[in-house]
Structure formats: structure tokens, C-alpha cells
Nucleic acid binder design. Structure first.
Lengths: 153, 153
DNA sequence: TGTCAGTAGATGCAAAAGCATGTAAACTGA
DNA sequence: TCAGTTTACATGCTTTTGCATCTACTGACA
């Protein structure tokens, strides 16, 4: 009765998820203490990071919200604060007058890059000893596939 | 110059991490909306879950804190609230009069199990279509290995 | 045995988060 | 074209979080 591509058991999926989740916690706990996040909270950096990866530069607020774990009102106010710090700029969307688009300012982009460079290095020092090149690639393959395959319900 | 077990490239580790992280965000965002977390916030459930997995039943506060992303004062107060709700109980540690040990109450254990049962099922519905049994096992293997291999610095 | 650095957790206070709701624009379908 | 619904974001208010600091206890060593 064994299939090559069997449906996963409940136990298997939940154990894999728990392991992934605990790993994320372990890494994040260490990351929080790194010096690069004294300047800017990790959640705020995450916003800048997301903005830096947007091809046009401008992103809709609701779209950005989907990539983050915070609520819509919280993001709204976080953007307000980031704007006050001069790190992002906002404008109303052309096609939809309800919408807001935001983008990094020059200063914001510079800060993101500054933190990003250091951070990638620290991350590498932290993680690299744990797995081989090939294993990291497998991990990425699996998490990419998992993320894109999640059922939306 | 190619090794079988080559040291990972910076790019490989950071891309794998980002993929893992984004996957975690995607799953958590969907989880937050599930009905089982109307009763109890996810972070609070996480505390109950951790307690339910402790072999002796009692856990030191600082030990518990290591498994969570919140700060020590926040945990301190969260436990206070959980105690007020009758879900956990606390006592001073025998060997170390500074320390606090906490454990689930009967009510807390019951609630954890109730939420847990439903939650595991929802999680399975959400994730199972994305990967095969074998792939979930690989994913767990890799995340376990990554978590235990993180350099502490 | 007394001092002193280190650790565990609590607490005052300010910042940030979430929930419920408000406002305004966009869609929908008679 | 216009009532009714939905969507995007803002805002009032409460709860939760974090930082800095405090207190109490421990453990090391002179």
C-alpha cells in the first residue's frame, strides 16, 4: 500500500512545522541581539527590506501588509513613524484614490543597505556551520515549495 | 575545486533563510485567522503548548523564555495574566529561591489539548497539499539540523 | 564569613500593538 | 445612476510589549 508520493501523515506535517517554527525562533532570538538592530527594530528593518525588493520601488500598503505579521492599523502607524524618521515616503495611488503607495527615501535605502550588508554576514556566520551548501539549497527548495503550495482555504 | 561537502556560499545561506522566514510568515498569517485562536492569542497558546511538552510539568520561567520571542518582562506579565485566567500555576523553585516554576493547571491543560487537537488538523489541511510525506521528513531533518547547528557566538 | 559580581524575576513607564470602528473611494447590479 | 456592499486606510481606545531599573537571592573567593 506504500505510494511513492504518499499523502503526508498528520504527524509528519505537524512535526515538520514545529521544527521549522522552532528553528525560526532560535534564529530570530539570536538575531535580535545583533548590533545592527540597535539602530532600527527588526520589524522596521523588515519593512525597509521588503520595500527595497519591490521592482518599481513603490508598494501598496495592503500588499506590504501581506508580507508581515502585524495588523493593518499597526502597519499604518509604523509607516507613519518611518515617514517621520525620513526613511520612507508615501503618496496616494493613482488608480485607486483610497490606496497609499510607499517607497524608500534615499536615506531609507542607504540605511537598509547598510544594515543589510552587516546582517547578511552575521546571518551567514550563524547559520553556515550547520548545513552544507547542498543542504541549504534543499532547504530553500522545500520551503519555497511549501510556501507556494499552502492551501488558502 | 568542487567539494562534496563544500562550505555554503553567503548567498545560499541567506536565500535559504529568507525562504524559511517568508514561509513561516505565510503560515502564521493564515494561522492567526483560524477560529481556535479567538479564545486565546497565539502567543499565549504557545506558552501553554511549551508547558504541555515539559516532562516534569514544571518549567523555570527563564527556560521557557528561551523558547519564545518575547522579552523577559513581557513573559513575566503574560504568565501573570495566564495565572489570573486560571490556566497556569506558579511556585518558587526549591533549589533557587530567586526562581519561579510554572505549570499548567487542569483547566490549562484541557484548553491546550482542545485547541491543539483542532489546530493540528487545520495545520495539516493547510500544509499537506504542498509537500509529500518524504519531503516533509526531509524538511524536518534539515530544520532540526539547522537549529541544533546554529553557532552561538 | 563577609563582600561582591552575577542571575532570576518584578515593576514603572513609554512605545507599540491590536480591536473596533470611522471615513472615503470603488465596485455591483438592478 | 444610484442604493448597497466592499475595500483601503486612518483613528480612538485598551492591552501588551519592551527598556531600564529594582529587589532578592546565589555563588565565588578572599
Amino acid at each position: 500500500m506504500a505510494d511513492e508520493e504518499s499523502q503526508p501523515q498528520i504527524r509528519t506535517t505537524s512535526e515538520a512545522w514545529e521544527s521549522l517554527f522552532r528553528t525560526q525562533v532560535a534564529v530570530m532570538r539570536r538575531m535580535q541581539q545583533l548590533p545592527e538592530f540597535k539602530k532600527l527594530a527588526m520589524r522596521e528593518y523588515d519593512v525597509l527590506f521588503n520595500l527595497s525588493h519591490c521592482p518599481t520601488g513603490w508598494t501598496r500598503l495592503n500588499e506590504l501588509n501581506e508580507a508581515l505579521l502585524i495588523s493593518q492599523p499597526s502597519l499604518s502607524r509604523m509607516v507613519e513613524r518611518l515617514e517621520a524618521k525620513g526613511l520612507v515616503q508615501r503618496r496616494t495611488a493613482e488608480r485607486d484614490q483610497r490606496g497609499i503607495e510607499i517607497a524608500l527615501t534615499e536615506e531609507g535605502r542607504a540605511l537598509q543597505q547598510e544594515i543589510g550588508r552587516v546582517h547578511v554576514r552575521h546571518l551567514h556566520e550563524m547559520l553556515a556551520p550547520a548545513l552544507s551548501e547542498e543542504e541549504f539549497r534543499q532547504l530553500q527548495f522545500l520551503t519555497d515549495k511549501l510556501r507556494t503550495g499552502i492551501k488558502d482555504r
